[in-house]
């Protein structure tokens, strides 16, 4: 029991690690604030393209979505951060993380929003067009508001996944929360900083998890 406390809940180690872990938390939040809106915008574009009537637009997008659904996000991140330099393209860790998460998240958000758009009957489209709205106005004012509401539970739960995904950035030495905690662990030979990181993720995500679970069961 003492060993457990000493190893996992060591206050002394936690206090020592606190400044660096706090900095990492800041970077994780920053990363989320960049990655979530980017993914949503990308996902919206993907959804509009994959529900488009133009085959030339739809097909490549569908293939890309399937590609990103099949490749692990970590593999994509490493391909971009370790592969691209061989082609002479050198990205900072932050840019590499942003780019790979943008591609991955756009595919996932895109699939969700597409399902939402497809859940709206053709009658809505016809009614809107019959009142003289053009196709963009129809999307913006009639289809998308309903579509997004219908898939709100999936959007919330995917956003939780996106936040958790940012922990992968630690693998390419971007100093976010998990990287900071892991560094503190390797210096102190004590797992308490990792427990701290876990607790911080819980504080950030537990409310969202509760919300997602409530939304899911309401349907």
């Amino acid at each position: 029991m003492d060993a457990l406390l000493h190893q996992f809940f060591n206050i002394e180690v936690m206090l020592k690690a606190w400044p660096i872990v706090l900095r990492g938390t800041g970077l994780t939040i920053l990363l989320c604030l960049a990655v979530i809106p980017l993914g949503l915008i990308g996902g919206l574009l993907v959804a509009l393209a994959s529900t488009s009537h133009r085959r030339m637009l739809r097909l490549p997008v569908v293939i890309l979505v399937d590609f990103f659904r099949a490749v692990p996000p970590l593999a994509l991140l490493i391909l971009i951060s370790a592969g691209l330099p061989f082609a002479g393209i050198r990205l900072s860790p932050f840019t590499a993380v942003l780019l790979s998460f943008f591609l991955n998240n756009s595919a996932y958000y895109g699939e969700i929003i597409r399902a939402g758009i497809e859940s709206i009957g053709a009658g809505q489209q016809e009614a809107a067009r019959s009142t003289g709205l053009n196709s963009w106005q129809t999307q913006c004012y009639v289809i998308l508001p309903q579509a997004l509401r219908n898939v709100l539970p999936d959007l919330v739960s995917n956003t939780i996944e996106v936040v958790k995904l940012t922990s992968l950035a630690s693998v390419v030495a971007f100093a976010e929360l998990l990287y900071a905690a892991e560094m503190a662990r390797s210096v102190t030979y004590n797992a308490s900083p990792l427990i701290m990181a876990a607790a911080i993720y819980l504080v950030l995500l537990w409310p969202a998890v509760r919300l997602a679970s409530r939304l899911e069961h309401k349907l």
């Binding site: 190893q7 996992f8 939780i160 958790k164 995904l165 940012t166 922990s167 992968l168 630690s170 693998v171 998990l178 905690a181 892991e182 662990r185 797992a191 990792l194 427990i195 990181a197 876990a198 993720y201 819980l202 995500l205 537990w206 969202a208 998890v209 997602a212 679970s213």
Partner: peptide, 16 residues
């Protein structure tokens, strides 16, 4: 398990 990134759990079990 929904709230914690799997990588955090992996590191805790593997190194802790």
């Amino acid at each position: 398990l929904r709230a914690l990134p799997p990588l955090v759990l992996i590191l805790i079990l593997y190194f802790g």
